[in-house]
Design a protein around this nucleic acid. Structure first.
Ligand SMILES: [Mn+2]
Ligand SMILES: [Mn+2]
Ligand SMILES: [Zn+2]
Ligand SMILES: [Zn+2]
Lengths: 154, 154
DNA sequence: TGCCCTATCTTGACTTCATCAAAATAGGGA
DNA sequence: TCCCTATTTTGATGAAGTCAAGATAGGGCA
């Protein structure tokens, strides 16, 4: 089913803004509202930021988009919904990879003790260091150049 | 080991601000910077917001505190570190519960395919509806009162 | 096809959460 | 106790996102 059909199904109007956002996220998943706005403006120069936010919010609420928020950055969006996959974020360069669920079908939707909560979503964000960042860190061995995590106390 | 000792171990000065933040989070986990500031001001009325942010950032970076960011709200903090437990957030009232890891010891630190990333942290945020929110929703059955998820499109 | 209603979009102000920079303060080693 | 500098305070600034009101344009229907 294409985007137009799906929007109709949901009782939504098929606007250029909505289609442009959906098309953009189809080819560029894990995009922030800013990134979506820039990308969408290639084919539709006049879209406002507010419209991007509106579209992202509405389509996310209706399950046509998925959103997740990596620590320390803006919310990201993708069209891949309904498979409850996870995300790995590089702590050094910010790269993001999809990670299939480790435990089988609807994994991670069954925590050990939910304290009576009726769990509907499991957002899993792994943080680590990607291969290329490990290499460049190794290359500069103890030096102060190259990709660095942000400085800390003391 | 108490907070003073631990701060010394880390080579940090033992300040009233740091101790107050640690003491407050000991009894009130899952607190935002704002909540921490309010709580800390009971015993130390002069602390600045900036100091609260400084302390939270520094102690988090050094592993003395843990931080996680539930979707749509400010970052929360706790003293319970090193056990990689998870969190369940009620989508209606915002209540937060600790959830032990489902899969054993250092669970969730082993996703199926990490795309070469060296995983160090697994942040798992479950979203659902807590027992008391289910009840009050049931009580008002289709009505427009009571705790409601925020309104959506159309 | 053209009209009309209202969902959607645009504009512009505003909120919240958080960081930056520089001067004042206060740990803690000598 | 004195001094150095880590830490705190103060005040400005930035990023991400929401709110509200008027303008625009989908799309059902004559
Ligand atoms: Mn993804
Ligand atoms: Mn916790
Ligand atoms: Zn990387
Ligand atoms: Zn609840």
């Amino acid at each position: 089913m294409d985007h137009t059909e799906r929007l109709h199904e949901l009782g939504l109007r098929v606007t250029r803004q909505r289609l442009a956002v959906l098309r953009f996220l189809e080819t560029t998943p894990h995009s922030s509202a800013d990134t979506v706005a820039s990308g969408v403006r290639d084919e539709l120069p006049e879209v406002s930021m507010q419209s991007v936010y509106n579209v992202l919010n509405d389509l996310t609420a209706l399950g046509m988009l998925r959103r997740f928020t990596p620590p320390g950055s803006a919310a990201l969006h993708e069209t891949r919904v309904d498979d409850n996959h996870h995300h790995a974020v590089c702590m050094t360069c910010g790269r993001i990879e999809d990670v299939e669920c480790a435990v089988g079908h609807a994994p991670c939707l069954s925590p050990s003790d939910t304290h009576g909560m009726n769990i509907q979503i499991a957002d899993v964000v792994y943080q680590g260091v990607c291969a290329s960042c490990r290499e460049s860190a190794h290359a500069t061995e103890g030096g102060a150049s190259g990709a660095q995590p942000r400085e800390s106390v003391a």
